[in-house]
């Protein structure tokens, strides 16, 4: 679907959600822009071109433009995606862009993921709970490389919010930990440097706002730009918390 070989480039029609909460005269609406497609054109390139040549007031977020920083989550034709790594050649002639739901709107395509993720980290205490303070004189504690790789797998989440936006539960229950939150918890749970007990973890995840709130629709798994194995993450969390529950019963 990329520009015709040697022929005229494809004319792309962007329908973009517009609303500026800081402007009393602004009302939520869709606005249309047209651009000629270029080779390797991403939504990063297209949106900047729209802002610089057609409408300087358009708000959106990009930083690294290489799918690493997680700034540019947006709804692309109804599906959450990172704008920077979405190529127009993979999209039809009409491209509809909306801000991610769940997160507070800042303006147009820009949403406040920062506040949401900070609260998630605070709520789940998503940091290593070490027993001892760091000893600058000591050699590092050893870790099996296989385990380091397994932790790294979950660590790869870039908190773009695509999974949260796609989640039916997160869209209706604002206390739901959300896919990214559950993934982060699982990452710390499997890390031997974190000394929280199974009982501690049980408190964090074993409720309707935690892993048992998930209805298993798994849109998160489908939309994750980093292809995190969220299906396996939830299975791991359920298994661990159920084991903790049974262990508690036996005591």
């Amino acid at each position: 679907m990329t520009s015709n070989e040697g022929g005229a480039p494809r004319r792309l029609r962007f329908e973009i959600f517009r609303y500026n909460p800081e402007d009393p005269g602004s009302n939520p609406q869709m606005q249309t822009y047209e651009l000629d497609e270029a080779p390797y054109m991403s939504l990063f390139i297209a949106l900047n071109q729209i802002r610089e040549t057609l409408d300087p007031s358009l708000q959106f977020d990009f930083a690294c433009r290489s799918a690493i920083c997680g700034s540019c989550g947006m709804m692309v034709n109804g599906r959450p995606a990172l704008g920077c790594r979405t190529l127009t050649s993979d999209l039809p002639d009409v491209i509809r862009l909306h801000p991610l739901p769940v997160f507070k709107l800042i303006g147009d395509l820009s949403v406040d993921t920062g506040t949401w993720f900070r609260e998630m980290v605070e709520k789940s205490e998503a940091w290593i709970h070490a027993e001892e303070a760091f000893d600058p004189e000591a050699q590092e504690a050893r870790m099996d490389d296989e385990l380091a790789q397994a932790i790294y797998e979950g660590e790869r989440c870039i908190e773009c919010g695509c999974c949260v936006a796609s989640c039916g539960v997160a869209n209706v229950n604002e206390d739901f930990t959300g896919p990214a939150g559950l993934n982060r918890i699982a990452r710390f749970m499997m890390d031997p440097r974190d000394k929280r007990s199974d009982a501690d973890w049980f408190e964090v995840v074993s409720n309707a706002d935690g892993v048992f709130g998930c209805l298993g629709m798994m849109a998160c798994h489908d939309v994750c730009p980093k292809e995190l194995p969220l299906l396996e993450v939830y299975a791991y969390l359920r298994r661990k918390t159920l084991a903790a529950a049974f262990a508690g019963k036996e005591e």
Binding site: W127, F134, A141, D144, D145, A148, Q149, E155, D191, R193
Partner: peptide, 18 residues
């Protein structure tokens, strides 16, 4: 070396020697 080990303490999943 201290700074790298501190990051290990704080949770960085450094690739390890096999």
């Amino acid at each position: 070396p201290v700074a790298v080990r501190e990051l290990a303490h704080l949770g960085v999943p450094w690739t390890r020697v096999r």
